[in-house]
Design a protein around this nucleic acid. Sequence first.
DNA 1: CCGAGGGATGTAATCGTTTACAAGCCTCTT
DNA 2: AAGAGGCTTGTAAACGATTACATCCCTCGG
Lengths: 337, 337
Amino acid sequence: MTRRSISIRDVAASAGVSVATVSRTLNSPAQVAASTRQAVLEAIRQTGYAANEAARNLRQRRTGAVVALVPNIANQFFSEILAGIAEVMWPAGYNLLIADTEADGQRPHRLPYIDSNRADGVILFDGAVPAEKVSSAAGRRAPPVVMACEWLPGLSLPQVRIDNVEGARLAVAYLAELGHRRIGHVSGPAANVLTRARMEGWCAVLDGCGLPRPEEWLFSGDFTLDAGMIAARRWLALDERPTAVFCSSDTMACGFIGALARAGVAVPDDVSVVGFDDIDLAAHLHPALTTVHQPRRRIGTAAAEALLTLMAGGKLTNTDTVLPVELTVRASAKPPR
Amino acid sequence: MTRRSISIRDVAASAGVSVATVSRTLNSPAQVAASTRQAVLEAIRQTGYAANEAARNLRQRRTGAVVALVPNIANQFFSEILAGIAEVMWPAGYNLLIADTEADGQRPHRLPYIDSNRADGVILFDGAVPAEKVSSAAGRRAPPVVMACEWLPGLSLPQVRIDNVEGARLAVAYLAELGHRRIGHVSGPAANVLTRARMEGWCAVLDGCGLPRPEEWLFSGDFTLDAGMIAARRWLALDERPTAVFCSSDTMACGFIGALARAGVAVPDDVSVVGFDDIDLAAHLHPALTTVHQPRRRIGTAAAEALLTLMAGGKLTNTDTVLPVELTVRASAKPPR
DNA sequence: CCGAGGGATGTAATCGTTTACAAGCCTCTT
DNA sequence: AAGAGGCTTGTAAACGATTACATCCCTCGG
């Protein structure tokens, strides 16, 4: 434990060269003669040397880590996105840290890592974070930030996202085409940028078709299972119920459908439902959920690649990457009776 | 960007003290006079100093990170456990890295981080990893390892887990008490330690009650939604079907129930189902899932605390922490017709 | 035969902390 | 009055890598 770990000096001694040569063998092999390189590599193998990251990071003035800031670690929507980020960052020599911005129900979301110099880059998934904190941090010595999924209206940070308005439009247009005239919406929190965009899509289609959208058909939620359940209760309490409902997340759609089913209301026979996200579960529900598909892994890889470019000091050719969405039609929506 | 960052020297200069005093103010405040401490803290505030982790880690011969190795990042069962770990590790000054051991369908699971000296400790959630890799790494300069949820049969590493046999027993005994005589089981992969323990519980209850368990009532899966769906197909194809099924994970129970529902089979009217894990979704399904509850956050915090002790060089008083399980009764099981 | 030039390697400074050791200053005891 | 001992604080040596600069050696053209 306390004994000195194997350092580059040990390798150098074993190979009969200087530490500089060992370092070069590892970092710019072309620069060292083939025979020397062989000897060094052999010495590394024999000694079981593994470079000390802290020393390398100190010298190179970096931390070797990037952090993904998600609103809530436990939200499974992010897991595949994070896997996509890790897939890009690991080979590039960066560790991925994951932290959440939610201070246990506290309103103003936290921004851990953004000003402490513990990360070389940040991928931010939370558009509800105080914009001035990000911009003021950026003024100083803060690492580059890439927004993903959500965005900060005030600032023009590089973004990777989908076309949320279009996604919502696809969903609602589909319901309208099936013949629904009364189409409700279970939304996210009012302040959320995704909520606004998706609601805009819902409004646009309804207005375009001349369909009504009374206040009580808008069920305000927060993307959780519970929110879906609460929306179901409110739907059940209505006199004139929508025959179709567009949910702003699959998770809420799950909660909504589950609560309805337990109340004896069948989807899609009594009410059609369309979700948003296409999480793994969607295809396995009963009924299988018709939903707006998000390319989650690609969101992760695209954001990671953008961040790599910025960290390398490069300029992005595209600071607003909009990935395609499509409607995945399954069984939870059908024409009204 | 390229300009030198604010270091401890700048703070020292600003406060009119030496760097040692600044360092001490931060790390052992009791050692420095109150007035000096004030001055230093003020200087820190003014300069906006944040310590360089790389330098500190280098000097202290640590990495400042712990890694959680899960079989699959995308598995939502782990998310709350990870949140529990982060909750303990963050205040203790450790970053949490998350990596998966699954090399895209490759059989022998990888063990990233365990021998490269990039982490001060490891929490391992995968019992399918080659035991000799862990033990050989331990022989060398490897960081302490704590197993969580799963365990490695050969080795006696410190563990945090639940009583899986007992959990399965509770589930199956409940079904037997409801009057079921034909009770099937959807299991995990044959090689998995959890699979074995839970299957043991299933067998024990059935044997104890003198109930049969023909081979075809054992549906071998792998904890995924798809596995649940496949089990459902096999169940449907049986001549003599079990009237109740105990699933080794809620995720499989979801897939199972969903596929049955789509085939027109109702739970619990036609078949009772009990799951394992009590994921968030369980309460929101239709029918709400009766399942074995795992204290996921506590698993995370307990494992994290054990690892902290080991990293501090301490001895564990308890190297095999077994947390309580209980059956959460909801609506997916009822007496057979 | 000599000097230029280039490739391979070594020397040593540097990154920003922590911490062993030394030193200074008081106070208090004898 | 002198020395012991307890607080504070400063000086400087690590920690283990990368990299600018110097050096050496060899080849090749004039």
